[in-house]
Each structure stands twice: as C-alpha cells, then as structure tokens.
C-alpha cells in the first residue's frame, strides 16, 4: 500500500512539475471546446452537452496515448526503472500507482471543462443526470484508453512506438463500432460476428451511458477493459526481469 501511494504521489506531481500537464490541458481544452461549437452546439438549440461528449472518444484516442506513452518507456530509457523496482515496491503497486495517477490527471482535465456545464445551465434547463452520466462515461472510457496505453508503453523503450501502437489500438476500439464499419463488415460476415464486433467496440457502450442509461453491461465493459490491460502490463513488466 505504501508503495502504491509513493508512486501515485510522485507520478501525479511529475505531471505538474514538467510541462506535460500544461501542454496537455491547453490542447485538450481548446479542442474539446472547438469541436463542440463546430458540431453545431448552438444550431441544435438544445441545452444539453451531447455535442461536447460526442467528440470525446476521438479526442481521447489521441490525447490519452500522449499522456501514457512515457509512463514506462521513459522509465526504461532513462534507467530510472532500476531505482523504482529495487525499492520495496511490487510491480503491481507501481503499475497501479502510475495508472491511477494518470487517471486522476485526466479527471482533472475533464473537470476543467466546467465552463461548458455553466454555459449549458445558463442557456437553458438541461438534464443534470445526463451531464453526470456523460462525464462518468467519459471517465470510464479514459480509464480504458489509459490501461491500453500503459500496456503499450511497457512494451517498448521507444515512446514514439508506444504512442503509435496505443493510438491504433484506441482507434480500433472506437472505429470498430461506427455504422460505416458495421455496414462494411455485414457485407461478408455473419450477423452474429458483426454484433460480436459491435459489443466489443467502445462506441455502443459509451453511447448508451451518454443517453443516461447506466447499465451493468456497459460499466462492466469498461471495468474489464481496464483490469485486463493493466494486468497485461504487469505481466509484461514482470517478464522483463527474467527476459
């Protein structure tokens, strides 16, 4: 437990002692706002945040790997991993510490989009429940992407490689579920497989949470995604010691 806390504290602080946090926050907040208004936030003439949340999967598919690429690749490149893993900290504690620090950082970034919420409440009478589930869905999705990114960061010493692999993996999760892909797949795959791909993609789960439906299957999808990739990351790092 002490190991987890130490890593978590150090990681979270390191976002703000390096320029990473500020560059990320500026770019993220700019694009989250820009895309919202570009998608016709005013034209819909509805006081809700659909136009805001709808961009999140694509935006996060690029932004999250940018924060995770350094998690392990940098440690291995600079050799600091030798310090980390010779302290009385288990690999699991270190992986979880890094994961949760990155997650909290992304939650801070999302919290800073509060002017959107204020705008919507100023303009009309939005459904607060929808906004809360919208944020919840986005946080869960960010966690899933983070776990994926952690894993790919542990695979390589090279940050560029881990970034590219994570973006591709996140994009596959997002795009596997869009109607274009579904239509294309259904031309040659049996219906059962197409719906299997759809259930495995992130889009349908994200959207149903967006609609305010908090179902067990959607939440558990993200939880399984997170646990699976974080566990895989731990295994890869443990194996590294032997290999």
């Amino acid at each position: 437990m002490g190991g987890f806390k130490a890593v978590f504290k150090r990681e979270l602080r390191s976002y703000f002692t390096t320029p990473i946090a500020y560059v990320f926050l500026v770019v993220f907040l700019f694009f989250s706002g820009y895309l919202t208004f570009k998608n016709g936030f005013f034209e819909i003439r509805q006081a809700d945040m659909t136009a805001f949340f709808i961009n999140m999967p694509l935006l996060f598919a690029f932004m999250v790997p940018a924060t995770t690429m350094r998690l392990w690749a940098e440690e291995r490149k600079t050799g600091s991993i030798e310090l980390l893993l010779t302290l009385p900290i288990t690999v699991t504690q270190a992986v979880l510490g890094k994961f949760f620090a990155a997650w909290v950082f992304l939650i801070i970034a999302l919290a800073l989009t509060f002017p959107m919420v204020i705008t919507v409440f100023f303009l009309g009478n939005p459904d607060a429940g929808l906004i809360i589930t919208g944020y919840l869905g986005t946080i869960l999705m960010a966690g899933g992407f983070l776990a994926l990114g952690c894993f790919f960061s542990a695979l390589s010493k090279n940050q560029v490689i881990s970034f590219v692999l994570s973006v591709v993996a996140c994009a596959v999760l997002v795009f596997a579920g869009v109607p274009t892909t579904m239509n294309y797949l259904s031309t040659f795959l049996p219906a059962g497989l197409v719906s299997a791909v759809e259930t495995m993609s992130l889009e349908s789960h994200f959207e149903s949470i967006q609609k305010g439906v908090l179902e067990f299957k959607d939440v558990s999808y993200f939880i399984i995604l997170i646990i699976g990739w974080v566990a895989a990351c731990t295994v890869v790092l443990e194996e590294r010691k032997a290999g």
Binding site: A6, K9, T18, S80, E82
Partner: peptide, 23 residues
C-alpha cells in the same frame, strides 16, 4: 546502481522524499 538511476525532473529533495515514501 552503476549508472545512478534517478528521476531527472525531480529535485534532490523531491527524490529523497519519494524514496522515504516508498520505504
């Protein structure tokens, strides 16, 4: 260790405090 692994962006005090946390 031979190449003195450390977190480059941290201050000396920050690093020592991290090690204390971990220990």
């Amino acid at each position: 260790a031979e190449n003195v692994p450390a977190y480059n962006e941290m201050t000396v005090g920050g690093l020592l405090n991290f090690v204390c946390d971990a220990r």
